[in-house]
Structures are given as structure tokens and as C-alpha cells.
Design a binder for these strands. Structure first.
Lengths: 336, 336
DNA sequence: TCGTAATAATGAATCGTTTCAAAAGAAGGA
DNA sequence: TCCTTCTTTTGAAACGATTCATTATTACGA
């Protein structure tokens, strides 16, 4: 029992295959009664268009590939949702790939998307993939970097000024009078992490009596944050930083868990804490978390718009959009 | 500048197209030196297999479609990640569709996946789609229900016993001495919500002096929880329930925000609170949240396994796997 | 040297659409 | 009736990879 093809429909309706195709793609070209006859044959036979054949003939699919660092991170899930919606209004579908900070999986998704001849790729890269992306564009696939910037302006990109974000967060701690600052870093291979650190460095540099310590976390998750927290507490109270800036909210939440629950430190009295991303859960944390807000949905939507722009008008120069981050003050630094 | 095809590679290497195809699919059938020559032509020309052509010929793609209710919900993102991993080991890729509780988007993704001739569909349905799914299977696409059960055993499924989960949560509240129980429901069109409520009803029925009140939330999000919380507080303290069970953790976190921050109620003293899903953030809430744990990753992995099972051996009967939920007690009910 | 068997390479046919030049049909005017 | 114009329908060609029956090549023993 083979699926019905356009030829079966044509036979059933007593017309030529070209007519069936026209009914599907240019209904106005077909006389109303013929059209009706074909449509009822389609539903009689349960005909479903074969996208592979369509794509083969058209030379391109109607989908856009999106590769994110971590779909479990609310920042990215919100971004993806907005991208999907924006693409849908442009008549395209988004297929989502989750690299999970794994370069191999990232590369695997790039392969897959290229074989599927997606119209374009939105990617928030793990590894240095500029070579691969360049090859992709050379073969006609449009690329937009998301939450990342092209060093050489070779690609369109949508990002947030993470240096400024790091600066905002750290200056906030310093203005509260904190001087022993710690930055909890995720993998420094990530540009986001490096930029946020750079911003923190700049801010600390503006206060001569302040110090900055950098602590590495294995990944940017709640669990990793907890691990760093446990490590920190082992030092004893005197050795603790009094202001901590985490590379993202997940780390901050984990740290908070460790400090307040396992060890009975007070936030913000003993340690003031700032996260990054302002995910929904930041506001409902044990101590509501001060954070840096990034417009996740806006980023996703804008990225699709840049891509569509490139698709519509053939030769457009790459554009980079940079959004400004925003400090959201809550209990973890304000002491109510 | 057209992308290189298998024919271009054949010309460049001075062999027939069939030989190139063999190099790609059955390398052993080709003499080593020929193979090398072809491979170097492939990299010279930057040849990338055209998946559409491959699929057209093969009659099926190598992808599996996954439609989830809400990718922003950590339960589903964790489920998806596990499904992707499991599929990758089986040589398949997962494409993710997020219905966002929207029947139209769900239907749209079903269309898309069917046109793409995915090997199978994993779906956590919003609307009643059994008719559509039946049609899908009739045309040869395998279907596995996720976090949902087929009423009539027509499909394989992986789920958690939500009635039991609702019972566990509610009995816990009752055993703490609470008697005015409220259930914060999400959309009752969802089987999950109905089942959890049913479990709550059963538990309340076992305590003759207990009452159950059902409050509806527009959606299962933090925001909706906050709205219900505000509504609840307007009644005044005497009218409040003393035990609240929420249809999921997001609702519970929103409720918690509203009760503790805007209105100064104490959890668990004034109101004991239980959520559902045990997402990562439950443990790091203002008051760590008691919840019902569902093995999200295991569900995703098992769903893929059931699907692969159906794909390998043609005529297998549908199987249903039901996992048991687990009560995780934290501060929101235990009073430290 | 010849014959046989094993190994390697070939290339036409196929999958299901879309496209488009050409043919057929309809309508109207002279 | 014939010609023109406009609308509708036709069906072969093309997209690019895979398959498989056929042909070519090689190796080896007699």
C-alpha cells in the first residue's frame, strides 16, 4: 500500500499531472469545476504532497535551521519560540537543533541542515565554526549569528553587548560598597563569558581598592553553580567575596542554593549576588535574583528578520544588530 | 554557481555516477584507489549530498518529528534532549516542533512532518488528534504518544501515572493536617490536568472532613500562577485554602511569588504548596517547592526506543509504558 | 594459452514534483 | 464560416541520488 502520488490523483480525477500541480500551486489557473474535481480526488485518496520531490525540483527547502547552545536554558527557549513565530509569518518552518555546548553535536547539525538544503541557518556557536559557515554561505545558504558577533563582519548577527552587561552588573556591586568581587565564569571558550568578564574587569578597574577573582564552572547549569558554591564556602567566611557576579542565572541560582541552604550564609548581607539573562525563574528564587536582562524574544525575531531580508533581496551586505542589556535589581543585592 | 552534484563528482573523478554513490554508501564495493580518487574529488568540489534526492529515492527521510506542548517548560526541554540523544545513537535526527499549547500550530507541525515523510512522530498532544494520527499511521508513519496515553490502545505511548501523582500530592497535604484543599488547574482540555485533578479528588474523598476547590488558570505558566495568586489573596485570610496543589511547577512558582512577595503570606504556615514536574528550579525557589517528580529524560529516551522498535520490526503491537511519579518533599510543605 | 570465477565499474531507470512550451478548446467578431 | 484572442489543459523534461542488471577487468589454475 503505497502513498498516493500526484499521478494517482490525476488518474482518479481524469486530468493530467500538470493540472493537479496547478491546483496545488496556482489554483486560479484552473477552471473552478476542474479544481473541485481534483480537490475531491485529493481528499478521497488522502494525498499528501511529497516534500522531498518538491524540494528536489525547487532546489531548496522551505525550512530554516536554528542551532542553540542549550534549549534547557529559558533564554534560548524563549528565543526559539520567537524565531519560530517570526518564521511562520514568513511562510517558513524552523527546525531546531540543540548543540548542548557540544562541538560535535553542533557540527552534526550543520551537516544535517546542509544536506537538507535549509534556506538559512541561525546559530549560536559553541566552537569556532567561521570556516564552516563561510563554506555554507559560499554554497548559497544564508547564515545569521545569534547571541554572537562575527569578528570580521562576514555574517549578519544579532547580539547583546555583553561587555556592557558585565560592566553594569559589576558596577552595581561596587556601588553597593562591595570590594571583593568574584566572577563565576562558564567555559571561557564562549565569547559571551569572555565579554562579561571583560566588562567586569573594566568596572573593577574604575575602583582602585576593589579586587576581582575569577572562578571557573564546568558548565553553565544550576548544578555547576552549586558545586562552585560548595567550594567557595569551604574557605570560611573571612575568605569569601562580598559581591559575586555569575555568568548566567542558572549558575547564580545554583550558587544561591548552596550558600543559603547547605551553608547558612545570608544573601545579600554576607554575599551580594548578580546573575545574567533574567530568566523567568530569577524573580521566584529563594532570594529574588538581581540580573541582567537580555531581550531573548526580540533577538530571535530580529534574527529571522535579518535572514528573510537576505533571502528576499539577493545581494545585501551583512548587518549586525546589537541590543543593550538592562540591570534588574532585586533582593539578592538590594537587601530589600 | 550551482552546488556540485554527484554527476559533477563523477566527471571530475573520471568514473560513473553509480561508483560515486557506492563510495558514499558501500565503500567496500569500490577498489581502494578509485575510492581515494572519488573522495578527493568530493572534497575538491565541496560536494554535499542532496538529502531531498536521497529521500525521494528512498521513500522515507531519516528524521523523527517531536511535537511538545511547551519547550519553555524544563520538563519538556529535558525530555527533548534525551530524545535527541537516543535518536542520534540510532542514526536518526530529531526535528523539534513547539506547539505552545496551540492546536493550530500543532496541526501545522503535523502537516509539515507528514510532507517531510519523517519516519515517525513523537507527540504530546494539545487537541484531540487521534483521527489525524490514525491517518498518519495508515500511511506508514509510526506514532508514539508522549506524556499521554491512547484511550483505545491504538498507539504506543510513554506516560506517567498522573492520577497517582495527583493522589500523592494531595494525600501529602492531607496528612499534614490540611483540610481546605485547592487545585490550581491548567486548561482542562489536557489529559494531564484532568488526571491530576482526578487523583486529587480520590485523595480528598478518603478524608471525610476535607474539601476540594478547583481554580482555573488560563495557561500553565509562572505568570498565570501569579494571576491566580492575586485573585486568591483578595478573598482575605479566612477564606484561603490551607493546602494548594498546582497542576505544574510553573503555576506553583507564580503562586508563590504572588503569596509571599506581594501579599505577605507564609508558606507553608499559612498555605502549604505542592507543584508538579520537579523541574530544576523547584529546589531553588523562594521557598523550596515540594513537587511530584517525573522522569523526563527517561520518558524521552523510552519514547524513541519504542519508535525504533516499531521501525525495525514491521508488525509490532503498540506498547504502553507507564512510569510511576514520586513525591519530593521540600520547604513549601515541610515547614523546614 | 585459455577458461572460469571473482571483483569492479557502468549507466539507464526510478522516485514525485514542478515547469513550461505547445496543443486544445471556447468565445467573440467579421 | 473563418480568424483571432484568451483561457485551460496537456505531458515531457528536469531535479539528484540510488539501485541493479549488465559489462569489463583481473587473477589464477589447468
Amino acid at each position: 500500500m503505497r502513498a498516493a502520488s500526484i499521478k494517482d490523483v490525476a488518474n482518479h480525477a481524469g486530468v493530467a499531472v500538470g493540472t493537479v500541480s496547478n491546483v496545488l500551486n496556482y489554483p486560479d489557473r484552473v477552471a473552478p469545476q476542474t479544481r473541485e474535481r481534483v480537490l475531491s480526488s485529493i481528499s478521497d485518496l488522502g494525498f499528501v504532497r511529497n516534500d522531498a520531490a518538491r524540494q528536489l525540483r525547487a532546489g531548496r527547502s522551505r525550512t530554516i535551521g536554528l542551532i542553540v547552545l542549550d534549549i534547557g536554558n529559558p533564554f534560548f527557549s524563549s528565543l526559539s519560540r520567537a524565531a519560530e513565530d517570526a518564521a511562520a509569518t514568513g511562510g517558513r518552518a524552523v527546525v531546531l537543533g540543540n548543540s548542548g555546548h557540544d562541538a560535535q553535536r553542533e557540527s552534526h547539525y550543520l551537516d544535517l541542515f546542509e544536506e537538507q538544503q535549509v534556506q538559512g541557518v541561525l546559530i549560536s556557536p559553541v566552537a569556532n565554526v567561521s570556516e564552516r559557515l563561510r563554506a555554507l554561505t559560499a554554497r548559497g545558504t544564508k547564515v545569521v549569528l545569534v547571541d554572537s558577533r562575527a569578528d570580521d563582519g562576514g555574517f549578519s548577527s544579532v547580539s547583546v553587548d555583553d561587555v556592557q552587561g558585565g560592566h553594569l552588573a559589576t558596577r552595581h556591586l561596587l556601588e553597593l560598597g562591595r570590594r571583593k568581587i568574584a566572577f563565576i565564569a562558564g567555559p571561557q571558550s564562549l565569547r559571551q563569558v569572555r565579554d562579561r568578564l571583560e566588562g567586569a574587569r573594566q568596572a573593577v578597574g574604575e575602583f582602585p581598592d576593589a579586587t576581582l577573582e575569577v572562578l571557573d564552572a564546568a558548565e553553565m547549569s544550576v548544578l555547576a553553580g552549586r558545586t562552585v558554591g560548595d567550594l567557595l564556602v569551604e574557605r570560611g567566611l573571612a575568605e569569601l567575596p562580598d559581591g559575586v557576579f555569575c555568568a548566567n542565572d542558572l549558575l547564580a541560582l545554583g550558587l544561591m542554593q548552596s550558600l543559603t541552604m547547605l551553608h547558612t550564609l545570608r544573601i545579600p548581607e554576607d554575599v551580594a549576588l548578580v546573575g545574567y539573562d533574567d530568566i523567568d525563574f530569577a524573580a521566584s528564587a529563594i532570594v529574588p535574583l538581581t540580573s541582567i536582562r537580555q531581550p531573548a524574544a526580540l533577538i530571535g525575531q530580529t534574527a529571522i528578520e535579518l535572514l528573510l531580508e537576505q533571502l528576499e533581496s539577493e545581494a545585501t551586505v551583512p548587518r549586525s544588530v546589537v541590543f543593550k542589556p538592562e540591570l534588574v535589581v532585586r533582593g539578592s543585592t538590594s537587601g530589600k
